[in-house]
Amino acid sequence: MRFLPLFPELVRQLFREPATNRFPAKYLPPTVTGFLHDVAAGRARLTPPVPTPPEFRGKIAYARDSCIGCGLCTKICPSHAIELLPTKKIRIWIDQCIFCSQCTSICPKSSLTMSPEFLLADEDRYSEDLIVE
């Protein structure tokens, strides 16, 4: 097999486990939302996604109580995803967030942190899951 070096590799792979992680299920369910309902009801099992490393930059978590409303984060957000509310608190539009984690570094009170949550797909960009306040 000098001229076609891939053949032995292919045959070997045939008897090995596939490399794909079976998230959320081995085959695409007929409806994903229906599948998620089944999972919630305990009728189906969800294969977990590949674990995230430490210090992964996922959805922003906001500690509202410690926020002093300085507005530094709004100045530094590259995508203008953070809005300073008249109440001296902030609102983050995750839909617009680019997960650069800059606001978490500038926050003087460490009120903003990056959570490891990354499953943020939604049908509505203004849904409750995508607004942090």
């Binding site: 292919l10 045959v11 792979q13 045939l14 090995r16 596939p18 490399a19 794909t20 079976r22 081995k26």
Partner: peptide, 8 residues
């Protein structure tokens, strides 16, 4: 698919 390390 299995030869390409996929589930298929």
């Amino acid at each position: 698919a299995h030869m390409q390390a996929r589930i298929g």
